[in-house]
Structures are given as C-alpha cells and as structure tokens.
C-alpha cells in the first residue's frame, strides 16, 4: 500500500481489541449456562477477528473482488460450522442435553 494511512483508526481498533480481550476473560469467569457460555465466547472472538480483517488487513476500502474473497473465507468457516453442528446436534441424546 503506497497511500498514507492515518494511525488514528488503528489505535482505536487496537484499544477495542484489548477491551474485547478483557471481556473474553471476564466472560470466561461468568457462568451463562449451557450453551450460552460457548456462544458468548464465539461472538466475542468473531467480533475481534472481524476488526482485524476489516481494518488491519485493509478489507475496508478494498476492491469488490477482495471483499468477496474475504467474505468467502468466513462463508467457508460457516459451511464447516453448520455441517459439524448438523452432526453433533442430531446425535442420539443431544436434544435432551441441550
């Protein structure tokens, strides 16, 4: 990237990531009950990953093709998660467990 980037947004994102790391730690100490503890941890992690991808990896302001590639990566993760859940959640006894 030859163009000049202001440092300000990166500092904000860095602070945001540090706060979210603290929230991750706090959430780990808090019992939300099953399965909410896992979902809260995943939500925080996804938010942090999105911040890194959008700002630090310059997807914000990138060409549509690059944005499509970035969304594609998340979509592939979604495919994996959806099919693994399709397995785990339909195993005998799982519905009672939930």
């Amino acid at each position: 990237m030859s163009e000049h980037h202001s440092l300000k947004p990166y500092v904000f994102v860095l602070v945001g990531l540090l706060i979210l790391t603290w929230v991750t730690y706090g959430a780990a100490l808090w019992d939300f009950g099953h399965p909410w503890s896992d979902l809260v941890a995943l939500l925080i992690a996804m938010t942090k990953a999105s911040l890194v991808v959008v700002f630090f990896m310059h997807v914000k302001g990138a060409t549509p093709l690059i944005k499509m590639a970035a969304v594609g990566g998340f979509f592939w993760l979604l495919i994996f998660g959806a099919f693994v859940l399709a397995d785990v959640l339909t195993r005998p006894g799982m519905l009672e467990f939930l």
Partner: peptide, 14 residues
C-alpha cells in the same frame, strides 16, 4: 467430507 465418517459415530442424519 462427512462420507468418511459414516461409521465414526457421526449422526445418522448428518
């Protein structure tokens, strides 16, 4: 990929 897991205790529905 799940066709490799037919006998691995993967759910029948998957």
């Amino acid at each position: 990929w799940g066709h490799h897991l037919f006998v691995s205790s993967q759910s029948l529905y998957a």
